Amino acid sequence: MITINKTPGLALAAAIWLAGCGVSQSKPENTKVETATAVTAFPLGKAIFSASLRTPGELQAFQQVDLYAKVNSFVRKLNVDVGSTVQAGQVLATMEAPELGSALSGAESRLRSQEAVYLASKANYDRLYQTSLTPGTVSQNDLDMAFAKQQSDFAQKEAARAAYREIADQRNYLEIRAPFSGVISSRNVSAGAYVGPSGKGSEMPLFTLQEQKKLRLVVSVPEAYTPYLKDKSAVKFVIKSLGNREFEAIINRMAGALDARLRSQRVEMDVQNNDKLLLPGMVAEVHIPLATADSVFVVPTTAVVSSTEKIFVIRVNGNKSEWVDVKKGREAEGKTEIFGDLRDGDMLVEKANDEIRNGSAVTIKK
């Protein structure tokens, strides 16, 4: 009789085999399907972008000067007042300084005296020279001394003449004349007032003269817009105090350098003001054209996302969104100039926002 010994290891193996022969059930997996975001997109293209910069400006007199007295004197007569229209060379005020008359008389006397001394020394030299033509009559030393005396007296005469002219010129300063045609915008003295070039009487100018038939329109253009400025470009500006009336001007001068504090360039335009409707000191709203001859990428302003970290647009690439970093340029009328790693024909989301995550699924609306 044959017997089979059952060991614990065999029993365990048989149990495992019987369990494997049973029916097994698998649990269903939870799968999440990503929903694509429907967006409106447009093909990127280049265009000539023309915009204008709106910036405040100030009207200034084309020429302005403060007129002071050059010599210590008293105001004898004022010929003009605030608002007077004057011509170049016109006498605005007359001064008086009695001491100048005395000084001029003294200088004239010294000049006449030196002229007489010079004539005497010249006559003496001429006689000695004529005598010296006869050999042995006049020594060469005497002739040289006479010539030196003549030259010294001539120098003294010219010095006296210069002193006389200096005082005479000071008398001419007693008349204050207009250096150019314009309007007297301020008067700070009255008849009888003491005036002078320094010290008491010179704290304020006698008059302030402005040329107002031609004005300067001055604006400060920020650094970002300076590459688009063009000389001789037509500019429009509005004066609100005149009922938003519009005027035109031409860019005539650009500083060619940036202000160290404001980081802006000074730009000046000449404005004809024959009717004197515009006044120096008026504030204007200036529209400066910022045109360029090169084509650039131009997109709707809504297509550019400005977050705290970056500025980007969203490109649709194979049903996936792709954030592309860009830099903004000029903006005008709902359009923005952009620069970045972009190509013609790229499909960009028209109304972009940071809720459309980078790499998320998107579909373009038909």
Results as ranks from 00 to 15, higher is better:
99 E>W: 13
288 I>Q: 01
279 L>F: 04
316 V>M: 11
121 S>N: 09
212 Q>N: 07
223 E>M: 03
122 K>A: 06
237 F>T: 00
63 Q>V: 04
162 A>N: 13
345 G>E: 04
179 P>Q: 07
28 P>Q: 06
344 D>P: 01
80 V>Y: 13
80 V>G: 10
157 K>G: 03
118 Y>P: 00
188 N>W: 11
37 T>A: 14
139 S>P: 06
73 S>W: 03
214 K>G: 03
319 N>P: 01
168 A>K: 08
158 E>R: 11
328 K>Q: 12
174 L>Q: 08
203 E>K: 07
19 A>R: 09
195 V>W: 02
146 A>H: 05
347 M>S: 03
122 K>H: 10
357 R>N: 02
140 Q>F: 05
211 E>S: 05
338 I>P: 00
210 Q>E: 14
86 V>M: 02
207 F>Y: 06
157 K>W: 09
204 M>T: 08
43 P>H: 05
104 L>Y: 02
336 T>Y: 10
181 S>Q: 12
70 K>F: 09
291 A>L: 10
73 S>T: 12
345 G>C: 05
78 L>G: 04
122 K>N: 07
246 E>Y: 00
267 V>R: 06
173 Y>Q: 09
55 T>Q: 13
305 V>E: 08
275 D>G: 02
217 L>A: 04
193 A>K: 01
69 A>I: 04
203 E>G: 08
96 E>A: 05
178 A>D: 11
138 V>D: 07
201 G>A: 09
60 Q>E: 04
222 P>T: 01
3 T>S: 11
291 A>C: 14
107 A>V: 03
29 E>V: 03
229 L>P: 03
204 M>V: 12
97 A>D: 13
225 Y>T: 15
355 E>H: 15
282 M>K: 06
168 A>G: 08
247 F>C: 00
113 S>F: 03
296 V>Y: 08
85 T>M: 09
284 A>Q: 11
43 P>I: 03
301 T>Y: 12
35 T>P: 00
29 E>W: 01
126 D>A: 14
78 L>A: 06
199 G>E: 07
287 H>Y: 13
44 L>P: 05
217 L>E: 03
292 T>Q: 05
361 A>R: 07
149 K>D: 07
179 P>I: 02
283 V>Q: 08
232 K>N: 10
127 R>L: 15
22 G>I: 03
187 R>A: 06
201 G>C: 06
103 A>D: 02
51 A>Y: 11
280 P>L: 05
295 S>V: 08
362 V>K: 00
64 Q>M: 09
200 K>H: 11
15 A>E: 13
220 S>Q: 12
290 L>R: 01
346 D>L: 02
222 P>G: 02
230 K>N: 10
37 T>W: 11
163 A>G: 02
195 V>P: 01
280 P>F: 04
119 L>D: 14
47 A>V: 13
30 N>H: 14
224 A>D: 10
36 A>L: 04
348 L>E: 07
90 Q>H: 15
338 I>A: 00
245 R>A: 00
175 E>V: 03
51 A>H: 15
150 Q>H: 08
244 N>W: 00
298 V>C: 00
2 I>Q: 12
141 N>D: 06
363 T>W: 08
133 L>G: 11
332 A>P: 01
61 A>C: 02
354 D>Q: 11
362 V>Q: 03
339 F>E: 10
135 P>Q: 14
320 K>S: 07
106 G>Q: 06
209 L>N: 01
171 R>M: 13
